[in-house]
Design a protein around this nucleic acid. Sequence first.
DNA 1: GTATTATTAGAGTATATACTCTAGGTAGTC
DNA 2: GACTACCTAGAGTATATACTCTAATAATAC
Lengths: 237, 237
Amino acid sequence: MNCKTTNADELMKTRDKILLSSLELFNEQGERNVTTNHIAAYLAISPGNLYYHFRNKSDIIYEIFQEYEKLVDYYLDIPENRPLNLDDMTFYLESVFDGLWSYRFLHRDLENLLDRDQRLRSDYREFTDRCLAAISKIFEKLAEGGILEPQPDALRAAMSLNVWLIVTNWMAFLKTAHGEKASACLTLHELKQGIYQVLTLELPYVTPVYREQVMELRERYRPTMPEQEDEREVSAG
Amino acid sequence: MNCKTTNADELMKTRDKILLSSLELFNEQGERNVTTNHIAAYLAISPGNLYYHFRNKSDIIYEIFQEYEKLVDYYLDIPENRPLNLDDMTFYLESVFDGLWSYRFLHRDLENLLDRDQRLRSDYREFTDRCLAAISKIFEKLAEGGILEPQPDALRAAMSLNVWLIVTNWMAFLKTAHGEKASACLTLHELKQGIYQVLTLELPYVTPVYREQVMELRERYRPTMPEQEDEREVSAG
DNA sequence: GTATTATTAGAGTATATACTCTAGGTAGTC
DNA sequence: GACTACCTAGAGTATATACTCTAATAATAC
């Protein structure tokens, strides 16, 4: 019930249904484990039908990636004319993790996706650059807002990269840290504990004035370790 | 010349040759792209021969993982009876990234590996726990040595997790950030720039006495952005 | 030397996967 | 009611992949 949503509305065009179902299946089972035949079967259409709408599997993935790109670019459009406050920061963090969740298959086995599709590789590269620039700008504008201590450019760049690494790989970590069972089921709530990790990173740079507030915000995302799974043997203290 | 080593010594037992060549091929091409037939062909032995020595591909991977585990456990054996100094820290960082390099295929598409092999999943989980504990202990002992400010347990745990995320995913980032070409060729030198990122993370916690030295150490690993590839169009600034 | 065990070759197989091809249906237009 | 553009079905294919089976060869023990 947790890991399933309904879609494939009767009113939707086949092409859109393919995109939507592909995303859903990719997210749940991993791109590697979802074949074009699976997608067709899931939609109860023929493989030929699927290939009428898309030249190949890569094209489906590429189109989904472009949606993702658009979404994140939209979220990370930083206002130029004013400093940022804590609400802004919360919004950025929440939005980014929401996007990550909706398109989570992309960050699983990304390397193989990029190896198979050069368009995707160069697009993703530029996407990364844009995101890093956005993160850096957020830091800058948070400093303007008196929330973070101002930092030299080089340090800010390195910090932004660390944030990027944590954000994009938190999901993968959760999957590997997850119990003995299949890694299919994971909740958005768990994913957002990544925000705790990002705020941990920022903590030393928060100005004394805002320390309390940021600590409180961070606390809201603290991982709740005990009994979040129904049945789990205690394996490590 | 950079991405190739010779092995498959004539004196070596077939079983060991299989392990060694598998590791080499996995590292260079990714586990997904290397079949048991490839491994056999590479060694100029028959598939039957390979399957005489290993029940299946998973067993090969599992055994390689156990080597990796042993190596890292050996590196991360923290002395109980004394604080740590800067040389210790350098050693740990260098060693961990060396290990990461030698077994780099493991951290590519790890999720799929874990999904396919339950032994690996639970072993890896415990391995992660041990590493996180080791990182935390290193921080503790660096504080004892007066290099880092002492920190409350909870913060140290979160910081350790951030270090783990950066260390284990730095390679993947480099691969995705790499130019238009195939991601096969990547150097140990580039990988070690991950140390710069880890030290960036620790920087705010370094005591004033050691700040200079740590900054210098960090500088040694600073990424050298311009012209490290033969021909590369300038795409961003 | 012969029996036994360890090792190897190499053809072969079951299954899967991405994708193709032909033929046919539907909807709108004149 | 024929023409056209769009859409769909479904059988089929080339290739790959993990793995098996049988038989032969080398090594070792007695």
